[in-house]
Simulated assay, not measured.
Amino acid sequence: MSDLSSVIIRQPVPLKCGDLAEMIRLVRSLYRLSQLPQYRSAVQSEVPPIAGFDPGHDSVMMGYDFHVTEQGPRLIEVNTNAGGILPSWLSNSPENASENVLHKKAPSPRRCNQLLETFAEELRRFRGDRNIKPRHILVLDENPSEQHLYPEMQAFADLFESWGVKATIADPAALYTDMSGIYFQGEPIDLIYNRHCDFYLETDEMSAVREAYRNRRVCLTPNPFTYALLGDKRRMVMWSESEWMKAVCANRRILETVQRLVPYSTLLSQLGRERAWQQRKELVFKPVSRFGSRGVYIGAKISRKRFETLPDQDTLAQTLVPPSQLTLPGQEKPHKVDFRLFAYRDRVFAVTSRVYRGQVTNMSSEGSGFAPVMVNGDNLAE
């Protein structure tokens, strides 16, 4: 059993139907963009060799994060190993948060089956077998028991076991590979649900995973190929360059949607350090190679000393899009709010809101968590 109550917020967060429709439109547009040969070719010229290997499948648990403004939603970033779907479903029934994820109404068996089907589809595409099902899924992360969302990993393991699939949670250092596959404590693994944030498998501890993935001995999802196409923050620079986009995509609707919903993004090296400093109050600075809010600085609050330490080639300068706010019952000060859409390929199957305090998204701050989303009075967690 897995206790997710510490990351659950009871209060539903309102979202306009039109804003949700725009978010879904962008998710589908970016997926379709990522399938275009011209786009893929352009991306491959700028990524590490491991990201040039196409494993033949996509990535589970894609997350698209948005801030909502008076002018509509704006994409903040794309995640290829987004967490939070299970607490977002359970947020509708917080009294059940410590129960097995299949119990009662949180979430429904239909939602669980829909989620599990994405993992089955990944292995089918990887193996080219429409009837195959995973036998052993390993949930992978660095020191998983120390991660903030470790209870969700446990809940995923419970869900996989209820599906009749062996499930293990492990650090990559515990894995080894040979010519026949990749193993944990002598047990073969056919699918790795990758929550590790070494997206390009570059560290020594990921060497076994890298070798098994590169030699097609395991289905790794999410994987470097999809991360390069959509999750690498450098792609937001590409999406901001209208002439480049026109060269790789002839679909006017895709171009218009991306241009409208993706805030202007560029590298600090392209903008110029002095110009960036002068415009800092309208910008947010993000490291391109790190995840979540680590190393993110709001331009209006960054000191000159700290600003000078930002690396030119590895810092994204993005137009600042402030999050909306929500005052929770019994609270005087408002929390900040963003929205995450979970998708598989071009299908959105869950929406959650992240409620937090601080300069940037910080799910470990007091009172932070995942909250249900209300659209025109309908709770999307139901």
Rank of each mutant, 00 (worst) to 15 (best):
T309D: 09
L328N: 00
D314A: 07
L283P: 00
L320M: 10
S289V: 05
G292V: 07
T315I: 04
G299M: 12
G299Y: 02
P311H: 08
L320G: 10
G292N: 10
Q331L: 01
L310I: 05
R304Y: 14
S303C: 11
P322A: 05
T309A: 07
G330Q: 14
F291L: 05
F291I: 06
V296T: 15
K281Y: 02
E308H: 04
S324Q: 00
Q331G: 01
G299V: 11
R294P: 00
P311T: 10
P311M: 10
G295Y: 11
T327M: 00
K333L: 06
R290K: 11
V284A: 14
Q279E: 13
Q313K: 09
F285R: 09
L316G: 07
I302E: 04
R306V: 09
L326D: 00
T309V: 07
Q318V: 15
V284G: 08
Q313T: 07
G292A: 08
F291R: 12
K333Q: 13
D314G: 02
V288D: 14
K286W: 15
P329W: 06
K286Q: 14
L316A: 01
P322N: 12
G295C: 02
P287H: 06
S303P: 07
P329Q: 12
V321Y: 02
Q331I: 01
Q278A: 15
A300I: 15
R306T: 12
P311F: 08
Y297T: 08
T327Q: 05
Q278C: 15
T315V: 10
P329A: 05
P323N: 03
V284W: 04
Q325K: 03
L310S: 06
D314P: 01
Q331N: 03
Q278V: 15
Q278L: 14
V284R: 10
Q313H: 13
I302G: 04
K301F: 11
R280F: 08
G295W: 06
I302F: 06
E282T: 14
R280P: 01
T319H: 10
R304P: 09
E308C: 14
R304G: 04
L283I: 04
L310V: 09
V296C: 06
P323K: 00
T327C: 02
P311N: 09
K286C: 02
D314M: 03
Q318S: 10
I302A: 01
A317T: 02
G299H: 11
Q313R: 13
P322C: 07
V321E: 02
V288C: 14
Q278S: 15
Q325G: 01
Q325V: 01
L316W: 07
K333W: 03
E308D: 14
K301V: 07
G295L: 06
Q278G: 15
S324N: 00
S303F: 13
R304L: 13
P329H: 03
P322V: 00
E332M: 02
S303I: 13
R280D: 03
G292W: 10
P311V: 11
K333A: 06
E332T: 11
D312G: 03
S324T: 00
R294T: 09
Q318R: 12
L328S: 00
K333Y: 05
G299Q: 03
Q331M: 00
K281R: 14
K281L: 07
K301P: 07
E332Y: 06
G295K: 12
T309K: 05
K333M: 11
V284I: 15
P311L: 10
Q279G: 09
F291H: 14
D312K: 11
